[in-house]
Design a binder for these strands. Structure first.
Lengths: 342, 342
DNA sequence: AAGGAGGGCTAGACCGGTTCACTTCTGTGG
DNA sequence: CCACAGAAGTGAACCGGTCTAGCCCTCCTT
């Protein structure tokens, strides 16, 4: 009664259908060379035996794999908190699934570890290509991974991705929109709680922040670097609120830090949005659950992931790749932003 | 200059080292039959050619795969929010990585879709085994997956997992602890915001809640069913706070709903913890970021994932499996719980 | 009726490893 | 000096598919 542990192979199906292995292969790959009647007979036999082609054998002989890799390099405790990645992964998968492809996911502790992993994956032909995320300045992954010829698509601005075809969000424009919005509300002392300087998109956002501030004739607002954790966001907010030139608005680089900022404001008796406006990035459900609800720069992370996957398939198909930005994050005003106290 | 797209195989390495394919295989698998000197020569040749064994070829001839599957069935938007899964996955991977194993992750939309996926994975020999999560009552996955003989470990109480070896947390005991704690503080009207009834561990918690309440001689506190989303948590909290018999304490089944509950209390001018105590489940960083900080039932999710992976390896090795619970979640009191108003 | 085209199908090489039966060589005990 | 054990290494079969060259047949053309 237990599982028939006999391994059923293409040969068994062929025998059952009274044809050769080759015919079965043709039928299962939708290729011409078998009549409709035979094809049906083959499918029936396969169904009855519960056979599906062995994927190792298939990729061995096809010389190709239908798996793509994704390594994410952040401490797990942080990752769990950022809704971004799960949503991103689900976008990737929505496209992979259409093509019967799988995603090999790995959380790594450092970029060097990632380099080793990607190299191994590629050399062992475990993956057909990879998605590279979180680019740093002068990213150390670029040289070795290009050298081994790993087909990949990079998530990040082309200025960071060292020649890999890439997909990115126009953070520069989005930051500008965020800052201008706060300025229009009347804020003049605007602070920015950003990510670590090494991380490419953090730098882009920080630069955009400073540029926009000076374009608006506002003295460069204070900028604090963090590692994206909630604790960091709380610490940064606390120190900003205690500073002599206390800002009237704070722009955060993710939503978890903004939530933390809201907590700190409450703790210090600073009223949001009356005394202080907060603006989050990476809008997630979280921003709608707090009181007051958080205004945020929102974007379609699921669609972002899907687009990345689509471009990867272009790369794998050997097509000319269409690097390009996805839709720019746009402002969703909620209850955490208002004119500054007069 | 571009990547030397020549495929280097074991034959090339053998030639370079002046031995046969077999010798290279022995060397790379740490098997006796080659001298230390030869072994070194082989490694040197491999290193120089940048060779690593092709994983498809290897699993084809070994008749085994070093990949395990995990399908998670929840809407992506929800998933992103629950820190639980990322942390859980990272725990799984910490064990897989030690054994050079990979995780195939897929987000699915329904249990039926998962059944199809797991069957395909297994029949195509893409995975050597699987991790099954989120068991429902009379879970429809059990019968078909047992029938095809998929080696798997289940995450959930044995009463739910239909004979699959399993790992679980003792939610019953944890709920009892939570309720008793609130009772000791003096609360008598305690409410429970739980998950959907179909979901196994939700039912266990709900039952435990009701049992403990009656053991303590408290009239069965109101229980609300939700789908685990923040919006659900907000809605549930709102209706509880508006009810005639307004509870003085609420126990939530995850942390995101507790955060939402906190927002609703603030919005309605109900002071936490003075007028209302809140207790969260699945303690994450989030619980420390709000104001007030959230008391929670905390457990080591990373370790949970790791233990699940270890048991899966037992299963794969054909050993007798050691099903068993992991450490029971324990209460971490913070600022959201206090005695009820007198 | 001969020649050609093309559909349907098969045999067998091949993908890149692992493994097993077997050979060769070296040292060892009787 | 021979028998024998064990270590080192080889050659070929095998894993389960894909794919190409080629065979047979039917139908069409002239």
């Amino acid at each position: 009664m237990s599982a028939p542990s006999v391994r059923v192979t293409i040969k068994d199906v062929a025998a059952a259908a009274g044809v050769s292995k080759g015919a079965v292969s043709l039928a299962f790959n939708d290729k011409p060379g078998v009549s409709d009647a035979t094809r049906e007979r083959i499918f029936a036999a396969a169904r009855q035996l519960g056979w599906a082609p062995n994927s190792s054998a298939r990729s061995l002989s096809r010389q190709s794999v239908d798996t793509v890799g994704l390594a994410i390099c952040r401490p797990a405790r942080l990752l769990g908190l950022e809704p971004f990645y799960m949503e991103f992964v689900s976008g990737i998968e929505s496209v992979l699934a259409e093509r019967d492809c799988s995603l090999l996911l790995r959380l790594v502790g450092s970029l060097d570890e990632e380099i080793g992993l990607q190299e191994r994956w590629w050399r062992e032909r475990q993956i057909g290509g990879s998605i590279l995320v979180d680019f740093h300045h002068e990213d150390p992954r670029i040289a070795p991974l290009r050298r081994i010829g790993l087909p990949a698509v990079a998530v990040g601005h082309p200025s960071l991705t060292g020649g890999f075809p890439s997909v990115w969000t126009d953070d520069d424009a989005a930051v500008a929109e965020a800052v201008r919005y706060l300025a229009v509300l009347g804020h003049r002392r605007i602070a920015h709680v950003g990510g670590p300087r090494g991380l490419g998109h953090s730098t882009i956002r920080t630069t955009a922040f400073e540029r926009t501030m000076s374009e608006l004739g506002l003295d460069g607002g204070p900028h604090v670097e963090t590692a994206f954790s909630g604790e960091d966001g709380a610490r940064a907010t606390r120190s900003l609120l205690l500073s002599a030139e206390r800002p009237t608005a704070i722009l955060y680089d993710n939503d978890i830090m903004a939530v933390a900022g809201l907590g700190v404001a409450a703790e210090m008796g600073v009223s949001v949005p009356d005394d202080l406006s907060l603006l989050a990035w990476d809008d997630s459900q979280l921003c709608r659950l707090t009181h007051p609800t958080l205004s945020a720069m929102s974007h379609d992370v699921h669609g972002f992931g899907a687009q990345v996957a689509r471009v990867l398939f272009e790369v794998l198909a050997g097509h000319d790749v269409t690097s390009g930005p996805v839709a720019t994050p746009s402002l969703v005003p909620r209850a955490s932003t208002a004119p500054p106290p007069s």
